[in-house]
Amino acid sequence: MSVLVVIECANGEVKKSSLEAATYGSKVAQQMGTTATAIAIGDISEENLKHLGAQGIKKVLFDNDARLKNFVNLAYVKVIAAAAQKEDSKVIILSNTNIGAAIGSRLAVRLEASLATNVVALPEISGSTFKVKRGVYSGKAFAEVNLTSDRKIIAVKKNTIEVGHEAGEASVENFSASLTDADFAAAPKEVIQQTGDILLPEADIVVSGGRGLKGPENWHLVEDLAKALGAATACSKPVADVDWRPHHEHVGQTGITVSPNLYIAIGISGAIQHLAGVNSSKVIVVINKDPEAPFFKAADYGIVGDAFEVVPKLIEAAKQLH
């Protein structure tokens, strides 16, 4: 009756969001007096999976079917459902990612489970109540939700838990489910990987620019500071709307919600929709020439000044760190 953690892999590594999910899963297992098992599919080595022991995982079920190297929604759901049945898992942990949403929503119906996404804390378990805290109203509020089915699926938001570093290795067992053509009905014919850059949803530091930067030709300020800090770049909605930057960089209520350790906003006034997308960041820095910009109220550190003078000084100081 172990807790089952679904592991996402990319480029042969376990994603950081999955290391967090694994840590979360092993803590839930402790609460329930059981152990945590992981299910990993696709592009990863057995060696790397053993390291999940550090996050408290005792056993990894590994499906290395070559057809599942990329994410195939129906096939992945079938494998994970089979793993949950085999382990008789009453609790399944996912990452709160696009892949997690695609898996969790189907799995919840197939396994008749309660599903909570966007979960931001460990559950409260007492007797037959199982309660989780999740983000609602696009980051503007939280809800405590009772999961009333016998089986529960939880998608954990990034930065909910510090990645564990225990001693010990996980054992790795081969695992597979029998797949049919129907499970590949909507398989990707092409995958366009974003390369080189640090991925925004996974980033620990995000440097974001708004209309205060005056034009796409000035984005080197954002990019150079991001590079010096090892950060991902992002932008506000108005900037994406006028095509200064691509839409996948748009952070806010209708774009990506991020929760990095550090969010640096340059020339962004802080409309309520933008704040909703970033307010679970641990530390927020705001640089704006308008001292009345609402973003300062949500910030930990602020500089009132012209981005074109301030940011080069930050880049210089950040380079000195290395």
């Binding site: 969001s17 909507a186 990707p188 995958v191 974003q194 949803p201």
Partner: peptide, 8 residues
Amino acid sequence: IEGGHEII
């Protein structure tokens, strides 16, 4: 998807 796009 996180870090890219798929064509389906």
